[in-house]
Amino acid sequence: MTEVENVGLRLTNDQFSKEVDDLYARCKGGELADRQTRMAEIETLTERYFAANEGKMPPAPLLDRLATLCLREEMTDAHPDKMTREEWPVMSDTQREEREQTETSGTWAEEIGVDGANYRKDTRENKRKMRVVSTR
């Protein structure tokens, strides 16, 4: 293929982004519910980009979106016990934030008893902080 013919086949980042958006829309619409079909579509799209852009990689944010699309089942699984029932669990950003909010630090577990009493060793610094808090 000559260079003049190849220019017409160039796939810009904007076009690639629109095609990724189209894949997401088709996936949400149920057309790409099967993982194998979805993976084949993603591979075809990336191969087209490589061929049209002389082997250059697509931008990282678009590759990240395609990776999320590859792992759609894992990323959309909202089951609260996902981390213990899956062999290789993957958390979305939202799921990770929710988990961090409910976790308790190890220090807290060492200092607070089952009865709820604070068993932290009283120190001069701790008492001074409590005096400052109580005077406000």
Rank of each mutant, 00 (worst) to 15 (best):
T44A: 14
A40V: 14
E87M: 14
P89T: 03
E103W: 04
L32I: 06
Q95P: 00
R10Y: 05
E103T: 07
T68D: 05
E43W: 03
R35W: 04
T102D: 05
L45I: 02
T76A: 11
R120D: 02
T76S: 11
E73I: 10
P58V: 01
D21V: 07
E111N: 12
L11Q: 04
E47R: 06
G113Q: 06
D93C: 05
A117Q: 11
G30Q: 09
N118Y: 07
L23Q: 05
K56I: 01
K28D: 12
T123A: 08
E103C: 13
A60M: 08
K28F: 15
E73G: 08
R99S: 13
R26V: 01
D93G: 07
E74V: 00
F16C: 01
L62Q: 11
A78M: 11
M39F: 15
T104A: 08
R99H: 14
K121L: 03
T104W: 03
A78Y: 01
E110N: 07
T2E: 11
Q95V: 04
D34S: 08
T102E: 10
P58Y: 04
E125W: 06
K18V: 00
R124E: 13
M1H: 09
P61D: 09
A51N: 13
T68G: 13
V4N: 06
N126D: 10
E3N: 14
P58K: 04
D34I: 09
D77F: 02
P61Y: 06
R131W: 00
R48K: 14
V133P: 02
D14F: 06
N53H: 02
N13R: 03
M1G: 10
